[in-house]
């Protein structure tokens, strides 16, 4: 039926058109069709690179380990275990604590740098930004090793302090501790804080700052009533950019953390590696994801509340 009716409509419409031009006309007419076309490559990668593996991860997390293989009956046993056995909770809490502190320190340290470039540098701003991100041109692993050299038992800090006569024995808390992990993470992710902070500060209309001064605010009051609230999008973006990846990080804690500095990422890595319990590893990954999502939501709500309170 369709095959016979199609040629008829064509003759009624006038000369037949190539189907390609019909698609082109559709894209010309419909803005959303054009939008989807532009998103198509990303959408494809997202589907096959994220959604599909994610579904696989969920399925595996519902399996259980059985000897050297997996029992593929679907069960929530792993989730129950991850909730009941204290080791998982402890490591999760520690991960949130370490990356939370690292995030806070990074944002606090990077804010003044971004502020300086945004408000007090008038020429070659781009060069300043490039200089600030210069350390991040080396690989992540190299930077972690560099911190090992600095913080180590016979490292730069300890030998420096000892030769200066300030301490007798090397400080042991520097390496293989949560402190070492926090210091390293804070340094390793600084570039991810500086850039969004700089962009949000740079965007602030200077006449707003003058207006605040004109209306009686000293430098401190002006900062807390105008500059900080208006740069909040940058602070939130920087916090997320650092907090989310550092919670699951396993390289830094593995190399610098020692037993007290191990994080949930190390445990997940173990499940997929030496322990060979993929279902448990998948379960922990999903639990971690859910917790991060929940914490991010709380963080967003709290900042919004605080912002309303300050002003």
């Amino acid at each position: 039926m369709a095959e016979t009716s199609l040629p008829k409509r064509r003759t009624a419409d006038g000369p037949p058109r190539a189907s390609g031009s019909r698609i082109l006309r559709l894209f010309h007419r419909s803005e959303s069709a054009r939008g989807y076309l532009m998103m198509a490559p990303t959408l494809t990668i997202m589907t096959f690179g994220i959604v599909v593996p994610f579904v696989i991860l969920i399925v595996i997390s519902l399996w259980t380990r059985h000897g050297f293989g997996f029992d593929t009956t679907l069960t929530l046993a792993n989730y129950v275990r991850s909730w009941n056995e204290p080791i998982y909770g402890t490591l999760l809490l520690r991960s949130f604590w370490i990356s939370g502190v690292a995030t806070a320190i990074t944002v606090l340290l990077c804010y003044p740098m971004a502020y300086y470039v945004a408000f007090h540098v008038h020429r070659n701003k781009m060069m300043w930004i490039i200089l600030m991100t210069l350390p991040f041109w080396t690989s992540y692993l190299l930077r972690v090793f560099a911190w090992k050299v600095i913080l180590g038992y016979e490292g730069v800090i300890n030998s420096g302090l000892m030769s200066a006569g300030l301490i007798e024995a090397p400080l042991s808390f520097l390496l293989y501790s949560p402190t070492a992990v926090i210091i390293t993470l804070a340094h390793a992710w600084a570039a991810f804080a500086i850039l969004p902070l700089y962009v949000s500060l740079e965007k602030i209309d200077r006449s707003l700052l003058e207006a605040a001064t004109d209306l009686g605010d000293g430098p401190m009051a002006r900062f807390f009533r105008v500059t900080l609230p208006l740069s909040m999008p940058g602070v939130i973006a920087a916090s997320f950019l650092i907090y989310i990846p550092t919670t699951g990080d396993y390289i830094t804690p593995a190399l610098l953390g020692g037993p007290d500095g191990a994080m949930i990422g190390n445990l997940i890595q173990l499940q997929f590696g030496a322990v060979n319990n993929w279902p448990m590893g998948a379960t922990l990954s999903i639990v971690l994801m859910l917790w991060i999502a929940a914490l991010a939501l709380v963080f967003l709500l709290v900042t919004r509340k605080v912002q309303g309170r300050i002003t």
Binding site: D205, S207, L208, E210, A211, A212, D214, L215, V226, P229, L230, Q307, T311
Partner: peptide
């Protein structure tokens, strides 16, 4: 003294 700015400088977050 107080000023009315050319761009008005109304605080966008308030």
């Amino acid at each position: 003294v107080n000023m009315v700015f050319q761009s008005y400088a109304i605080f966008p977050h308030l």
